[in-house]
Design a protein around this nucleic acid. Structure first.
Lengths: 97, 97
DNA sequence: ATAAATAAGTTTATTTTATAAACCAAATTA
DNA sequence: TAATTTGGTTTATAAAATAAACTTATTTAT
């Protein structure tokens, strides 16, 4: 009946992050922050969670002299995202007679 | 960009409840419990939250001598559910080039 | 030169939420 | 009549989301 929803993706902010990253090859921390309108702290925590699960990869480099965190989705993450969408459909297919 | 997701609906169990109720005119507590595989306690709490928000209506009657809780979705709830689906789309439309 | 403000985050603390365990009352079965 | 089941509710706990506070370094203003 209802397929379980990956709790890591069933979160507004993490879903937004994954949505951004699946459409872009890479994105920097401030860009994601701006697009999601998240606070830096919240974003940092959620990026770490996604990275710990292997759904994204974080590259901490420098842009000139300032720190710069580049985020990329992994193959695992992309697969999980697509699976999540499939699972969601089991809740959304409204067959109102 | 990303539309906010109604926190009342962005919950696996509550979403399942709403999904069931939007397709059925009414459903009894034990049926929802069975379909969602939720514990009675969790289901009771989540039904109350949806009822408090006016998304569903709970009718406490008797079936013979046993108590029987009948659940129905309201117009408000149906509208919220549809709005939630629309909002979700802003996260799911993957335009991978 | 140095003080104030900004950038880019991280860490920690707080609030909220989900979930199950424990409980209750009545009815049924052994 | 004792134990079990049904149909829940209430309460306690575990997990999660979120923001506030903090850090380090860099600009910008005075």
């Amino acid at each position: 009946m209802f397929q379980p929803l990956d709790p890591l993706l069933h979160s507004e902010l993490r879903l937004a992050i994954m949505s951004l990253l699946i459409s872009a090859d890479e994105a920097e921390f401030p860009y994601i922050k701006e697009q999601t309108r998240a606070t830096a702290g919240n974003l940092s925590v959620q990026l770490d969670k996604l990275a710990s699960a292997g759904y994204i990869q974080l590259e901490k480099t420098f842009k000139g002299k300032r720190p710069c965190t580049i985020c990329r989705i992994t193959a695992t993450g992309e697969q999980a995202f697509r699976a999540y969408i499939e699972a969601l459909k089991s809740y959304l297919e409204v067959s109102k007679s």
